[in-house]
Amino acid sequence: MTKRLIALLLLLGLGTIFADLIRGFTPDPALNMSAQFYAARTVVDTGAANIVTAIIVTFRGLDTLGEVTVLFLTAAIVALVLGGNVSGVKPRNWPVGELLQTGTKLLVPLIVLFGAYVFINGHLTPGGGFQGGAILASAVLLLLLANPARRFGHQLISRVEAVSGLFYVGIGVLGLVLAGGFLDNRILPLGEFGSILSAGAIPLIYALIGLKVGAEFSSIMASLSESEDK
């Protein structure tokens, strides 16, 4: 009872701070300086139509590299903590319905295609690497659900992840050598605005990020589903 009372008092204090923040907030009438810079220079510098994509991949690309590294660390630690049992796991064999199995065979190619579409078109429409990677991971999850007795191909997932990470940093270094700086996207021609082969190296970088993030999410879920059953 006292624990709840103390928690309530603490949250009441936080609540007064939040109320003060809301009351003192007025939205700006126009964009601030950095947003105006991004809005004006996106087409000229990068040739992309999606400003958020241009910020994530090109203008602040080093932060994205750090985020992908943090995700990689997360997947590695989850696999380590759950003590991935390579052998000696008895496969759970509950009866999987026929509807799920047939539906999976029909749906998984479509989901993979949709995920690839989302991260290839990241610079033109809302979308990009993280969303496409999450969609790819859900296709892998559907495979896991429909066939729980199958040994999952960890080799393939870790190879995809390692290779795409290597190519991502390789493209960054190529930007150092051929164009303005690390992860510059002008190593490929900017192309015309609005077509799919435009915006330099942004589709390539985002596709690699999408594959890497999808592989990491799949690895987390495979570790969780293969941990030892009591």
Binding site: Q131, A134, L141, M221
Partner: peptide, 26 residues
């Protein structure tokens, strides 16, 4: 914010619930 909406729907509502139910089943 359409980009953020897509990401939140896929990751926050989809993958997080899957992770929770995997662990709950164990």
């Amino acid at each position: 914010a359409p980009d953020v909406a897509m990401t939140e729907a896929a990751i926050g509502s989809g993958l997080t619930t899957f992770l929770f139910f995997f662990v709950l089943g164990r």
